[in-house]
Design a protein around this nucleic acid. Structure first.
Lengths: 334, 334
DNA sequence: GTGAAAGCGCTAACAA
DNA sequence: TTGTTAGCGCTTTCAC
C-alpha cells in the first residue's frame, strides 16, 4: 500500500477503454472521439491520475528536462541568465536541472556526464573557459548544447552573447574622449577567453584608434570578487591611472568603494565604466556607468535556441548569436 | 543508428555475464566475485557505458533528483540558500530541478505537481507564504518536503530557519539602547507570516520591553525591492523616525541610499539595521549593520534533512530546526 | 556468486 | 477511432 500510485492502466480499466486511448487523451492526440475523451478525462479527475514522467521518458526517449551548468547561482550575472533560461524553459514545458560547477573543469565534466545519464534533452552551459576535454565530450555526446553568456573561442558550438570586443572598445573610447590619458583595464583571469581575448582586444583597439600606446602596467588581472576590487586602489593609483574599464560589476563596486574610501574624487579625478549593468551598479555611490547587456534575454534566447535544436529545427541557426549591448551613463563618468 | 546508446545488455553480452551481474557491479553490490567484477568494469570502460538514469528510476522508483521551488533565483537571499542546497545534494548524489515561482500561488502549485510527475524523491520549498491549497497538496502527496528559510506558521512541515522573532527583537533593542525614540519597522508584505507574524512580533516585544508604545504610523509595508526602499525616505522622515529595522537587504540598501541622497546623516541622525546580511550590506556606504543569518547553511541543513527523510531516517527529526542568527555592527548604527 | 525473468508505467507502431 | 502488443533500460525477486 506504500505510495501505490494509480497508473494509466487503472484509468483505462475504470473508463472502459485501452491504455492507448488514455495515452492519447493525455497527450492531446486528436484521434479520439469527443465522447471517449470526456469519459476518460472524468476518470482521470476522479482518480486524480498524474502521468509518470519517468516512464514516459523511458518510452519516448524524451525527458522534457534540460541541464544547466552554471558557475555559481549566487553570482547575479549568472542567476539573471538562469532566470531567463527557466522562464523560457517553462514556456516550452521543460524543467531545468541546475548544477553549480564553480567554473571548475573536473566538476563541469562530472556534471555534464550525470546530466547525460539523466537523459536530459539538451544542455545550457555557462562558464568562463571551455576546456578541450569538455569540448570533446560535448561533441561526442550528440546532445544539443548551447552556451549562454559564454564564449567559445573556437566557435564550434552555438552560443549567445554580446560583442564583447566592440562593447569594451566603445566604453574605452568613451573614457578616452573625456580626455583620460591612462585608462586601466581591470578584469578577472586573463586566461578566460572572454577577458584575455575579447575584452582585452576591445581595449587595445580603442587605444590604437586614439594613438595611445598599450601599457602592460595598466592591465590588472584579479579574480572577479568585491574584495579583489576593494584592495586594488593603491595599485591603480601607483600606476597613475586616471580611469578604468572594469569587466565585472562586483569587482567594479569593489574598485569604486576602495577608491572612494581612500578619498578619491569620482568621477572628477578617476572615471570608471563597468561591464554587466547588474543591480549592483545602482546601489553604489556614485552609481556606475556601464556597458549594458540584456542578461535575462541572453538566457532566454539561449533556451529558445536549445528548443529549436531539440526539435531539430536548427538548420537555419547561426552558431553565434549576438544580442545588442548598450551603454548607460551614470555617476562614475563625466 | 540515431543516438543508439549502449545498454546494460550490451555490456552483459560482451562480458559474458548476465544483466543482473552487470547491474550488481554498477550498483556496488558486494555479491560479485572480484574476477567477474574486474571483467565487467573493463567492458564498461571499453564500451563507455553510462547507466540510463531514467530506466533506473522507473525500475527502482528512485530518481535521485529533488525539486527546489524558489521565488526568484535572481534574489541573492534565495540563491544563497539554493547554493547550500545544491552542494549538499551533490554530496549525496542528488540533482536538483530548480523552478522559479515568483512567490505566486498558481505557479507554486503548478510547479509542485510537475515535480511530482517527474517523480522527484523530495522537494525543498522556499517561499513567503504557504497557502492552504499547497499545504493540502503537500500533505496528500507523501513526498518529503522541507522548507528552507521559510516559515510554516502552522508548523506542519519540517522547516529550517532562524528565530526571526528574537533576532528582530535584538536588533530593535539595539537601536533603542542607542537612545532612538521612534524606530520604524520596514518590510515587505505583512501578510507574509515571516513579516506580519514573526518579525513584527519581535519588533513589538522590543518596544514593550522598553516601555514604548507601538505606533502604527511607524510600520511601513512595501515590496522587497530596491526601488521601494529608495522612495521611502520622505515618508520615513515625515513620520519623524530616527531609526529603522528593515527586513530585507535589497530594500534596506534602497532606504539607505534614498536617505543619503536626500542628505540625511547616517548614523548620526538616522540609524538602520537590516535583516539578511547578504553581500549588499557591504557594498553601500555607510555599510549596513545587520542581523546575520547562515544563509548557505540554512539551505545545506534543509537538504540534509531531506536526505534523512528520503531514507526514512527521520523519526528523530524535529519539525522546526533553528539555526543561530547573529548581529554585526557596521556603519549604519552608532 | 550468478542467472532468468518479471515487471516499473508509458509510448508507438501496427492492426482492426 | 480504438485496441493489442512490443518494447524503453534497468532493478529485483527467486532459483540455482
Amino acid at each position: 500500500m506504500e505510495k501505490q500510485s494509480i497508473t494509466i492502466y487503472d484509468v483505462a480499466k475504470k473508463a472502459g477503454v485501452s491504455m492507448a486511448t488514455v495515452s492519447r487523451v493525455v497527450n492531446g492526440n486528436p484521434n479520439v472521439k469527443p465522447g471517449t475523451r470526456k469519459k476518460v478525462m472524468e476518470v482521470i479527475d476522479e482518480l486524480d491520475y498524474r502521468p509518470n514522467a519517468v516512464a514516459r521518458g523511458l518510452a519516448s526517449k524524451k525527458t522534457t528536462t534540460v541541464g544547466v551548468i552554471i558557475p555559481d547561482v549566487t553570482n547575479v550575472y549568472f542567476s539573471s541568465l538562469a532566470r531567463g533560461i527557466d522562464d523560457v524553459a517553462t514556456m516550452y514545458k521543460y524543467n531545468i536541472i541546475l548544477a553549480n560547477s564553480d567554473g571548475n573543469e573536473e566538476k563541469e565534466i562530472q556534471v555534464f556526464n550525470t546530466l547525460l545519464a539523466k537523459q536530459v534533452d539538451g544542455i545550457i552551459y555557462m562558464g568562463t573557459h571551455l576546456t578541450e576535454k569538455l569540448r570533446e565530450q560535448i561533441k561526442r555526446s550528440k546532445t544539443p548544447v548551447v552556451l549562454a553568456g559564454s564564449i567559445d573561442h573556437k566557435n564550434e558550438f552555438v552560443s549567445v552573447h554580446v560583442d564583447y570586443v566592440k562593447a569594451v572598445k566603445e566604453a574605452v573610447n568613451n573614457l578616452l574622449a573625456h580626455g583620460d590619458k591612462r585608462v586601466a583595464f581591470v578584469s578577472g583571469p586573463l586566461n578566460y577567453p572572454i577577458n584575455g581575448e575579447y575584452r582585452l582586444k576591445g581595449y587595445k583597439e580603442a587605444l590604437d584608434e586614439n594613438g595611445i600606446e598599450f601599457d602592460q602596467d595598466l592591465v590588472f588581472e584579479t579574480n572577479d570578487s568585491y574584495r579583489a576590487g576593494e584592495t586594488l586602489w593603491p595599485a591603480l593609483s601607483a600606476a597613475h591611472a586616471d580611469a578604468a574599464f572594469v569587466a565585472d560589476d562586483e569587482l567594479a563596486t569593489g574598485v569604486l568603494n576602495g577608491a572612494v574610501d581612500a578619498g578619491a574624487q569620482i568621477p572628477a579625478e578617476f572615471e570608471m565604466i563597468t561591464g554587466n549593468d547588474s543591480k549592483l551598479t545602482q546601489i553604489v555611490r556614485p552609481k556606475l556607468s556601464s556597458i549594458t547587456q540584456p542578461l535575462y534575454d541572453i538566457g532566454a534566447v539561449a533556451m529558445r535556441c536549445l528548443t529549436k535544436m531539440m526539435n531539430k529545427e536548427d538548420e537555419d541557426l547561426d552558431k553565434t548569436i549576438e544580442l545588442q549591448y548598450g551603454f548607460i551613463k551614470r555617476g562614475s563618468t563625466r
